[in-house]
Each structure stands twice: as structure tokens, then as C-alpha cells.
Design a protein around this nucleic acid. Structure first.
Length: 446
RNA sequence: GGAGAGGUAGCGAAGCCCGGUCGUAACGCGCUCGACUCGAAAUCGAGUUACGGACUCAUACUCCGUACGUGGGUUCAAAUCCCACCCUCUCCGCCA
């Protein structure tokens, strides 16, 4: 078993620790609480670790106590069986065991209550950031990795995508508001077709050139799936929940696709594995009032082509770099300028150990905006979801590492095309790579 | 929606009627190691669940506990008996 490959990268605090104990579980919490405390501090998260540790202490005490009694009962029950078989009278022993069973029952209930409380709290502890993750408070502290492409120059003041969309008649927010409400859009004509062209193009590149297997999963998932990938229990308010059911609309295809492998033991030869899925995504955007209220940057429903990779723990950071290039390839083909940033510790998502965001250049806003997020979750999701593989020659199975990234967010890609390819006369040029998907059209509208 | 069958280890499957020697889960397949072989196949032998706890430098050994779809109940004792729910399959009905 070799985790040394990770150590080669960076002998930081977390790496050395992870090399020894590559898991965030109750054992890690108990044996190295300082590691967890440090990780929480890096993430600027406030969790009462001492309360959790105390709970664990109580839990283990009760467990030991009740298990001792159970061992007694099991032994005595065997005796009863033996006595009965040999025709002896076991009624005295049985009466005695009645009292023991009653005590076990009471103690068991207390133990289960404490354990449930402990598990519940443990599920709210985020993953430990990788050693290469820069420390920081917010997205302002994210570090730029590289830039690709040159932002286009315009002989006029470039417009924002919603202005372009309004003039060309493809983005109809008023009607969507009537049908549903705010933060929804009705795509008409060229916009609907452009959306379709974009996700077809993305799926073709990912499946035909990068070796991903295409899947089309349910977009409604149950609670267990959301616990597995880490959206629950902490982020209930970000999700659309179907009243009276155990069902939720997916916020990302990461949830159904990763959960394909929930409670599964894979062959080592299957790793690494890549799946991609085109799905709608649904986000309640609670708490985002006032942000991106114009246009289609931030919607309750949007389309995304998602890439999911399952990797061997030894190579998952190589897989992350690979995944990143798969997402970048789409922007390069569409000739859209972008930059890659590493999320700092304070901006990192709950389940991720390390995340690269790809930000595309938007001339209308004169800024880079997120269009893809590529993360290595290490074994965090795998532990929650029970995704394992059997290493060659090893007795025990091990947890896989899971990764995922957008390849790409379709709506935001349309935004980027409208803004980067806009022309003085108000029309928009079609990127060369997309023309075959639009019947050869070179200009929007078509 | 109606009727029936089923859910047991990586997979298939026995056990359930009649509770205890069946979770060290029959049997088969797969996988791992070994023997045989120039090598392979075939054959033979051994091994092969997960989680939690105790002990530990140890994710090594050993011991203990828990888990036979899920949750309850009966019992000294539940894969086995009772209740509720979930899921899968077959047939019927309805429907895109």
C-alpha cells in the first residue's frame, strides 16, 4: 500500500498526516483531533470539536459496557441450548437471563441515541484540505494557476449577454417568470438550438476524445445519495425537496453519477474510470438575493455536462490534473479565453480536498467568471457512499478516490460565446468548432 | 392500482415450514496464494464480507460485538415466528 506518491508533491502538514492515516473518520478524529482542528481553522469553519470528542468518549464507554453484557448473554444462551439438548431443566438460567436482556435493552437504547448524535455531528465535518491548497478566507484569496487565450478587443463597448439576448430575441425571461417565477429562462429559436449544439459538442468531445462513458441518470435522487456525496445534511436549504417524499432535484449530476457506485466494490482494473452525463441541475440559490439578477448566470435550473472520475488513491491528484484538461479542452476548442484558479481553504466546498475553478472571460462584465469547478474529494465521498476497490493481493478492500468537474456549465458557455463573439452590428459570430452542430451557420441569429 | 414471487457474502444460490451446533453461512462461480507444468489450460490444496469496540506505532495479529432489504415486536435466544414499510421481478389494469 503506497501513499508516497502524494508525499512527493508536497511535504506539508496535511500530506504527512494523510500519508499515515488517509481518512477522515471517527478514528482520525480521536487519534489526531489537532489535524481536524487545523483543517476546520483553515476552512474558517466553526464546529464544536470538543463536544464531538466528548460524545465519542461517551459513545465508546457505553459501547464497551453493552458489548460486555451481550457477550455474557450470548454465552449463556449457548448454555441454555446445550442444557435443553441434553434434556436438563434450564428455566432458572432463563429467568436470570431475562433480567440481563432487560438491562441490555435499556443500555442499547442509550448507546444508540448517543451514537446517532455522534454520527449526525460527524457528517457535518468537512473534508481536510490538501497540503497544496493555499490558505485564505474567500474567493479573493484564490490563486491563479494559468491563463489561456487573449480577451478580444472591441471597437465598441461590449454588451452583457442579456442585452445581446434581448436584442436577438432568444432569451425570454418575462415568459419564464409567468410560467414559473424569477431565475428561470425560456430559450427560443436560435438560443434553444445553441444550447442543444453546445451540450452535444461537449458530450462528443468527452466521450469520443477523452474516453468517458456517457450516462443519463435520474435527476431526482433520494436522501441517501445526497448524504453520500456530501450535499446533505448541511445544505438542505440549497436543494429543491419534493414535498412529502424522500426525493430531491439534483443540484449537479455529480450526485446521481457518483452514487451509481454507492455500496459497491470495484475491481482495481476498473480504475481509473470516467463517466460523463448531461443533465439539468436545480439550485434554490437561497441567500443569493441581489447576485447576478440579470441574465442566465445564476438560475434555479440550468444544464451541465458533468465529468466524474473514480481513481486509485495513489494517482488521484494526477487524475485531477487530467480532469482539468478535459474541461479546459472545451473552452480551447471554442476559443474562449479563461484562467484557472486554485480555490483557497476558505472557499473550498464541503466535500472537496482540492478544487480548481475555471473562469471564462466575459467582456460585458470585463471579468473572469466561474464556468467549471474540478475537485478531488479523495476518499471523503467514498467513505460516506461506500465505494471501494479490491487492491491486488490485499485482503481488505480500500476506498477509491472520487473526482468530478463540469465539462462545462452549458448556460454560462452560451453567455461566454454571446459576449466574446459579439459584433458591432449586434449579431454574434459562431465559433468554428460549433458550426457543424448548427448546420453550418456562421452568425447568430440563424 | 390488483394478484403472485422474491431481497442471504464480489456473483449465483441453499437454509425459513419445525427458532439454538447457520454470519467460521451448505453448494457452485469468481478472485488470491500454492502444487503440478517449459509455459498455459485442466486438476488438486489453502484462503477470500463489512462495520464498530478492546488491545496496539499499526489501516498487522488476537479477542469481543453488530449486520441475512429497512424499522419495530415476540423470546433466555430470530436468517427462521409476528407487524409495518422499501425495493426488484412476473402477470393483469391504466398511461407518456
Amino acid at each position: 500500500m503506497c501513499f508516497a506518491a502524494r508525499g512527493d508533491r508536497n511535504f506539508g502538514f496535511a500530506t504527512i498526516f494523510l500519508w499515515r492515516c488517509p481518512m477522515l473518520d471517527s478514528k482520525l478524529l480521536r487519534t489526531n483531533p489537532e489535524i481536524v482542528r487545523k483543517a476546520l481553522q483553515l476552512r474558517r469553519a466553526t464546529i464544536d470539536l470538543d463536544a464531538l470528542l466528548a460524545l465519542d468518549e461517551t459513545r465508546r464507554q457505553l459501547t464497551t459496557e453493552v458489548e460486555t453484557l451481550k457477550a455474557q448473554r450470548n454465552q449463556a444462551s449457548q448454555q441454555v441450548a446445550q442444557m435443553k439438548r441434553s434434556g436438563q431443566d434450564a428455566s432458572a438460567l432463563m429467568a436470570e437471563l431475562g433480567a440481563l436482556s432487560q438491562r441490555i435493552k435499556e443500555l442499547d437504547e442509550r448507546c444508540a441515541a448517543v451514537d446517532a448524535q455522534f454520527q449526525e455531528m460527524l457528517l457535518t465535518i468537512p473534508n481536510i484540505p490538501h497540503a497544496s491548497v493555499p490558505e485564505g478566507n474567500s474567493d479573493a484569496d484564490n490563486t491563479e494557476v494559468r491563463r489561456w487565450g487573449i480577451p478580444p478587443q472591441f471597437s465598441f463597448t461590449p454588451k452583457e449577454h442579456w442585452e445581446i439576448g434581448a436584442r436577438l430575441g432568444g432569451l425570454d425571461f418575462e415568459t419564464a417568470a409567468k410560467i414559473t417565477g424569477s431565475r428561470f429562462v425560456l430559450l427560443r429559436g436560435w438560443a434553444a438550438r445553441l444550447e442543444r449544439a453546445l451540450f452535444s459538442f461537449m458530450l462528443d468531445v468527452q466521450t469520443q476524445e477523452h474516453g468517458y462513458q456517457e450516462v443519463l441518470p435520474p435527476v431526482i435522487v433520494n436522501r441517501a445519495s445526497l448524504l453520500g456525496t456530501g450535499q446533505l445534511p448541511k445544505f438542505e436549504e440549497d436543494l429543491f425537496h419534493l414535498t412529502g417524499t424522500d426525493y430531491y432535484l439534483i443540484p449537479t449530476a455529480e450526485v446521481p453519477v457518483t452514487n451509481i457506485f454507492r455500496d459497491t466494490t470495484l475491481d482495481e482494473a476498473d480504475l481509473p474510470m470516467g463517466l460523463c452525463a448531461f443533465t439539468p441541475c436545480f439550485r434554490s440559490e437561497a441567500g443569493s438575493y441581489g447576485k447576478d439578477t440579470k441574465g442566465i448566470i445564476r438560475q434555479h435550473q440550468f444544464h451541465k455536462v458533468e465529468l466524474v472520475r473514480l481513481a486509485h488513491p495513489d494517482t488521484s491528484y494526477d487524475e485531477l490534473e487530467l480532469l482539468l484538461t478535459h474541461a479546459e479542452a472545451i473552452l480551447q476548442r471554442l476559443e474562449l479565453p479563461y484562467r484557472v484558479v486554485t480555490l483557497c481553504s476558505g472557499d473550498l466546498g464541503f466535500s472537496a480536498a482540492k478544487t480548481y475553478d475555471i473562469e471564462v472571460w466575459l467582456p460585458g462584465q470585463a471579468t473572469y467568471r466561474e464556468i467549471s469547478s474540478c475537485s478531488n474529494f479523495e476518499d471523503f465521498q467514498a467513505r460516506r457512499a461506500g465505494i471501494r476497490f479490491r487492491p491486488k493481493g490485499a485482503k481488505k478492500s480500500a476506498l477509491v478516490h472520487t473526482l468530478n468537474g463540469s465539462g462545462l456549465a452549458v448556460g454560462r458557455t452560451m453567455v461566454a460565446i454571446l459576449e466574446n463573439y459579439q459584433q458591432a452590428d449586434g449579431t454574434v459570430r459562431v465559433p468554428d468548432a460549433l458550426q457543424p452542430y448548427l448546420g453550418g451557420a456562421t452568425t447568430i441569429p440563424f
